[in-house]
Amino acid sequence: AEDTGVRVELAEEDDGNKSSIALRLWVEDQKKLKGKYKDSGAIEFTFDLDTEVPETVAQEMVDSGFFLETDVKIVGKSIRDRVSLIKWRRQRSASASNGK
């Protein structure tokens, strides 16, 4: 995935079944963002792979004061990239199981 300066990782091991997963997000390289986030920490939240949209969570982070509106797209993209990877991994392991 593209290096957005915002790191998103699983906050728990993915069991491959639950649609709701815990993610952790933090600013890894603030130079890639327009706002200054020197003192921000890691933000942990749950995300539903089936029903939720990454950009909505990014907007809620803006609303909550974690990010500036100007960076909402890059935060949304960072979440979207990680969510896509998680879904891809799940599909791959599902097709591997079916192939047996």
């Binding site: 890894e28 130079k31 890691a42």
Partner: peptide, 27 residues
Amino acid sequence: SSATLVVHSAGRRFIVSPVPESRLREQ
């Protein structure tokens, strides 16, 4: 550890905690 809970009006819960030093990239 010092974690802070922030609840968005839509109901989502954000738990904020310090990023471990080991996870921060060299600037």
